[in-house]
């Protein structure tokens, strides 16, 4: 019932042909993967509103591009094996077995080496991105400090140097900002999705995060840690405005610039 060639025949078929087909499959999958990686994540994450988010999107795209050939290897092998070696019908007693291939030192070595190298590359990339993100706010102008307090289920933003408190977040564009985040009750998580920053708001301690907003517009503040009944409603707006508009807003709130 097996219409396949015998093992001897298969041995006879040129190995280079096998590798050629595989390489073509792999190349197709890789190209598709890279195209996907270059377009889709960026499209979904939307235009970035801060230097942090730019870095995040760049890293995401980079990782996707780097992993496309890896996934392509796995999928190419899987698809090829189905095309080439799939048995028609069920196994029966006495059917010939596959070749007794118990390992192949070269293949394993290359596999481990490549995956280690890739891992090392991702690690170095990640550490570099991390230090960039961490040092973002340290550079340039004096950072604007904002105290963020989460409580069930609202955010409060206070600008200590300006003496303003608000339930809306207003940020001047291109000025580093440091958020000191805490909570009055349970754990919340302060998330600015368009700016790529998030840090938990823990009761009893203060955590901090920072970024430089670089795009005018209306964005969101969300809570990313289940914090009880109205967790889904714990969101507010974040507005990035020009420096002048910011001063006007501060003045309007009764603060001093």
């Amino acid at each position: 019932m097996s219409v396949e060639t015998t093992p001897a025949d298969r041995q006879g078929r040129s190995r280079s042909e096998e590798l050629k087909t595989l390489t073509i499959l792999w190349a197709i999958f890789t190209v598709l993967g890279v195209i996907f990686a270059l377009i889709v994540p960026h499209h979904l994450m939307g235009p970035s509103a801060s230097n942090t988010m730019t870095e995040v999107e760049r890293t995401f795209t980079m990782f996707s591009v780097a992993s496309a050939p890896v996934a392509a290897v796995v999928w190419a092998l899987a698809v090829y094996s189905l095309m080439r070696w799939r048995r028609r019908g069920a196994w029966k007693e006495g059917d010939p077995d596959g070749p007794p291939l118990r390992g192949h030192g070269m293949t394993s070595g290359i596999w481990i080496f490549l995956s280690s190298a890739l891992c090392l590359f991702l690690l170095i990339w990640g550490l570099a991105a991390l230090s960039k993100v961490d040092s973002a706010a340290a550079s340039g102008a004096t950072p604007l400090e904002i105290d963020v307090t989460g409580q069930q289920w609202v955010w409060t933003f206070s600008y200590p140097s300006q003496g303003v408190e608000s339930d809306q977040l207003v940020l001047p564009v291109n000025r580093p900002v440091v958020f000191k985040v805490t909570s009055d009750d349970v754990i919340h998580s302060f998330w600015l999705p368009e700016m790529g920053i998030k840090v938990d708001a823990n009761p009893g301690v203060t955590t901090s995060t920072s970024t430089v907003p670089d795009r005018l517009g209306l964005y969101h503040v969300r809570c990313a840690e289940l914090c009880g009944l109205l967790h889904a409603d714990m969101e507010t707006n974040a507005r990035v405005v020009t420096s002048d508009d910011f001063d006007t807003w501060i003045a309007g709130q009764g603060g001093h610039a």
Partner: peptide
């Protein structure tokens, strides 16, 4: 499993990257 786990594994690498995790954690 080969199909699913490669996607699960790669997205795991995104999440292991600290700056990316800052964005993706809790989402």
């Amino acid at each position: 499993m080969l199909w699913n786990f490669i996607i699960g594994g790669i997205t795991g690498i995104y999440l292991s990257d600290v700056p990316l995790d800052y964005q993706l954690h809790g989402s």
